[in-house]
Design a protein around this nucleic acid. Structure first.
Length: 844
RNA sequence: GCCGGAGUGGUGAAAUGGUAGACGCGGCGGACUCAAAAUCCGCUGGGCUUACGCCCAUGAGGGUUCAAGUCCCUCCUCCGGCACCA
């Protein structure tokens, strides 16, 4: 029979080994052998490496998810080999609007879509070969999980940090729910970009402002990107200044204003109150009443968005009333204008047009006086100001305070005001309390209930049904006493979300749970009660999930104290920068509360944070369906395999950098892996490697170790590529080197590394092989190429022993023809010799 | 406007103040092949030069230094965030 040459494999000759089979084989092996199961090993140093868990959307994983996940996976595999006890879990942040929106659109129950989405995400993540401990997988919609979300809520409630209030909230009619300030971007919902309006409603609030000072101070202690820290500081928005009373003789009242620049009080030429200010109506004189009322009414109709749009021309009108500047004793007019916010400070300001850009614009527009009282040198400005002077400086025209610097003036005048009972030192915060309730179905039920009242007494009625109670409420003969919230007994948790097909929002403020009468109304000791029907926002489950991973199946504690003590804090947290203020601020807040409650031993949850940079489309634009530049990981995996995919995402550039996708680059990774595979086809030599190869390898161990530890994966990969380029030149592949190279590759391309390790005759897993040590002497060359500079330009290069002494080095350098040529006819003014590094001559 | 980050070949990017452009992609040339693909080898910042070499070059302009992509000052551009918070 003729010998039939084996056909090239069907999936193309570029696949030199059967990537799909190899990857499937090892993924199955890891799962079956629970290779990455984690237990507490007290003898080892611990490392808690956390990914921001995904929201399992209907569209599946995008290429941005695996970027961070690959980084932490490589890091974890490396740390395990380096002798660490590593915790590396994954789970699902599965409550929230998108799943519910999708469910509403398709008529499927959110529980079903959520389950399906999770299955997809799990399959996709497993296909990438990540070393998660799957026995710690969590799902925020699992009652066994949200039992503890509710338990933490009860802690907040007990400590007075959860309360209800009738407050102006961000109501989003399209989504049928209120949103937190953090969820509103430019007057639109963060999710879905729907309009948001301000309207007062009864809401559950969390008193995050009580932690403002600590949340701010804690930022300084964190190893986080500067940008994120700045954003948190900015969001918390501490502002120190003074409150000052301006007397309003016509009313016999004081108008209290907040200012950060009490040193400009002599320049305060008018006062402005917000349209929402409680005194507005009374401030309006008879002549101004109609216009003030109209202005206030118009302002109340405007959304925040509209108010911002009107920035260019600042509107406002006089109230007709005057106030007295407490220092100059002069009368200044009181205006009402919507550039002053009702919800910040006292809702009133003293306007100093000469030294505040906003006041300046307003004063110019409305012809109000502009009086400078401060300049860089304390000399009055010679000409009228063209713009506000807002820097610090030296005061003039300020009575006894003239000549003082801004800071001295501020300190002294604040004391003076306080001593005379007309002011006080004051710190304001931009941070507001967190609106915590949502009028949606797909969230954690808030574990609170209220007494039912009929005719001023508790509603009793053994024969009543839940529906009957509702009828009483509808008819007005009974009501829910929202003023007397009662916490569900912790032993009764979880308070399960009722199953219902009627989960659609109605567009009014009544949550879907209000219609689940059998769940909502219940009888206890003969009395009727009504459950809270708002649910928690999406952020609730993610506020503490990193704690549940520590002990995920514990049903009598959030996590055991032993597990908490062992693993906290999170040593490295990797995720997208889009969570800079929302998730990261809320989670820090809850963590501090749990710290105060003695549940956790640390004040901050996430010691070190790294943001992976966004991956752009091949066109350099943000990936989006509308641009059609979205890369689907599933497709990439089929064509190139997980190892190549992982390697490519890490090789693209620094982890934190924003970088465009390139399918060409991916081909390069496949080529690299094929060449590695081919290298192991060579005869495996039993002899000792030669000196050059040995040095190469020891340098490689150091380089890959250092870079991996520092999350510089791109340069570690480059070093392995460079090493491969040398190794392929060897006539045979020494066994020791073959083993070593597989071990170094393992964190990066775990499937191939396992396969090669097995081919070398070892039992799995290559991941259990300790990370090799390098020999410091072998990890550096004894020869060095030393550049010789003449007047700063390299004129020769010397190949010399690294340790060659200065005198000899200088002598050799001088002998170089290239050096001679540039020194001819000149005298040496200076010689710098750095042994092993550099020789530099300065000649004249 | 304010805050944070970044500007380096055709391209993604490397470079403890000490040889700018490692590594990858792309391109060019060659080997193999009937041919192509794949693979392998070589070259590849720009300019001048037959050549040895020389000059220029890290957004722009200054400065410090024997030596600057790296440190300092001024400015420009791009990305991300915040934005009437007094």
């Amino acid at each position: 029979m003729p010998v039939i040459p084996p056909p090239d494999s069907d999936d193309g000759p570029r696949h030199r080994y059967d990537v799909a089979a190899v990857e499937r084989k090892w993924q199955a092996y890891w799962l079956e052998h629970r290779t990455f199961r984690t237990e507490i090993e007290p003898a080892k140093p611990k490392a808690y490496v956390l990914d921001m868990f995904p929201y399992p959307s209907g569209s599946g994983l995008h290429v941005g998810h695996p970027e961070g996940y690959t980084a932490t996976d490589i890091y974890c595999r490396f740390l395990r080999a380096a002798g660490y006890n590593v915790l590396h879990p994954i789970g699902w942040d599965a409550f929230g609007l998108p799943a519910e929106q999708y469910a509403i659109q398709t008529g499927t129950h959110p529980a079903d879509t959520t389950r399906r989405n999770i299955d997809t995400f799990r399959r996709q993540i497993r296909a990438l070969g990540f070393s998660y401990d799957w026995e710690r997988e969590i799902d925020t919609t699992d009652p066994a999980y949200y039992k503890w979300t509710q338990w933490i809520f009860l802690k907040l409630f007990e400590r007075g940090l959860a309360y209800t209030a009738e407050v102006p909230v961000n109501w989003c009619p399209a989504l049928g729910t209120v949103l937190a300030n953090e969820e509103v971007i430019d007057g639109k919902s963060e999710r879905g970009d729907h309009p948001v309006v301000r309207t007062p409603m009864r809401q559950w609030m969390l008193r995050i402002t009580a932690y403002a000072e600590r949340l701010l101070a804690g930022v300084d202690t964190l190893q986080w990107p500067e940008g994120i820290k700045a954003m948190q500081r900015n969001w918390i928005g501490r502002s120190a200044g003074a409150e000052v009373d301006f007397a309003v003789p016509a009313l016999g009242e004081k108008l209290r204003v907040f200012t950060t620049r009490p040193d400009t009080l002599y320049g305060a030429t008018y006062v402005v109150v917000a349209p929402e200010h409680p005194l507005v109506t009374r401030l309006a004189t008879a002549e101004c009443r109609a216009s003030v009322d109209a202005y206030v009414a118009a302002a109340s109709r405007k959304s925040d968005r509209d108010r911002q749009d009107d920035q260019k021309e600042k509107t406002g009108i006089p109230t007709g009333t005057v106030a007295i500047n407490p220092l100059t004793k002069q009368e200044v007019p009181v205006w009402v204008a919507d550039y002053v916010l009702g919800g910040y400070g006292t809702g009133a300001i003293m306007a100093v047009p000469a030294h505040d850009t906003r006041d300046f614009a307003f004063a110019q527009h409305h012809g109000l006086p502009i009086v400078p009282v401060l300049s860089p040198d304390g000399q009055p400005f010679a000409v009228p100001l063209a713009e506000a002077f807002t820097d610090e400086g030296i005061a003039f025209a300020s009575g006894p305070w003239s000549g003082l610097t801004t800071s001295d003036f501020q300190a002294q005048v604040t004391d003076h005001l306080a001593a005379h009972g007309i002011g006080a030192r004051r710190v304001n915060w931009k941070l507001r309390d967190w609106v915590f309730s949502r009028q949606r179905y797909w969230g954690e039920p808030i574990p609170i209930y209220y007494p039912m009242v009929r005719d001023g007494a508790a509603l009793v009625g053994p024969t009543l049904t839940a529906q009957g109670v509702w009828n009483l409420v509808q008819s007005g003969s009974a009501h829910i006493d929202h003023g007397a919230p009662i916490a569900v007994d912790a032993a009764q948790l979880p308070l399960r979300l009722p199953e219902t097909a009627d989960f659609q929002p109605t567009g009014d403020a009544e949550p879907p749970l209000s219609r689940c009468f059998a769940w909502r109304f219940f009888q206890q000791d003969g009395r009727w009660f009504a459950r809270e029907t708002n649910t928690m926002p999406q952020w609730a489950g993610s506020c503490w999930y990193y704690l549940r991973y520590l002990d995920p199946r514990n049903d009598h504690e959030l996590a055991s104290p032993a597990a908490i003590a062992h693993w906290l804090p999170v040593d490295l947290y990797v995720g997208g920068a889009e969570h800079a203020v929302l998730h990261l601020l809320y989670a820090r807040f809850w963590h501090k509360v749990l710290f105060d409650a003695g549940v956790v031993p640390t004040d901050e949850p996430f010691q070190r944070l790294v943001n992976q940079g966004m991956i752009l489309g091949e066109d350099g634009e943000k990936m989006s369906k509308s641009r059609g530049n979205v890369i689907n990981p599933d497709t990439v995996l089929v064509e190139f395999g997980a190892d190549a995919f992982r390697l490519y995402e890490m090789f693209m550039g620094p982890l934190e950098a924003v970088k465009p996708w390139s399918t060409h680059g991916l081909h390069g990774m496949r080529r690299f892996l094929n060449r590695v595979h081919t290298l192991y086809d060579k005869p495996i030599g039993t002899g000792a490697p030669d000196d050059a190869t040995l040095r190469l390898c020891h340098k490689l161990i150091r380089k890959v170790g250092d870079d991996t530890r520092a999350l510089r994966f791109n340069t570690a990969i480059a070093a392995m590529m460079a090493a491969l380029n040398e190794l392929v030149r060897l006539p045979e592949f020494p066994r020791k080197i073959a083993e070593l190279f597989a071990v170094l590759l393992a964190p990066y391309v775990p499937h191939l590394a396992e396969e090669l390790w097995q081919r070398l005759g070892h039992p799995p897993s290559v991941g259990s092989v300790p990370w090799p040590d390098f020999d410091a002497a072998l990890a550096q060359d004894d020869l060095a190429e030393v550049p010789v500079q003449v007047n700063g330009k390299v004129r020769a290069k010397l190949m010399v022993a690294k340790t060659l002494d200065r005198g000899e080095l200088e002598r050799l350098a001088l002998a170089e023809p290239g050096v001679q040529r540039h020194m001819a006819g000149k005298i040496i003014a200076k010689v710098i010799v750095v042994p092993g590094k550099m020789v530099s001559f300065v000649v004249k």
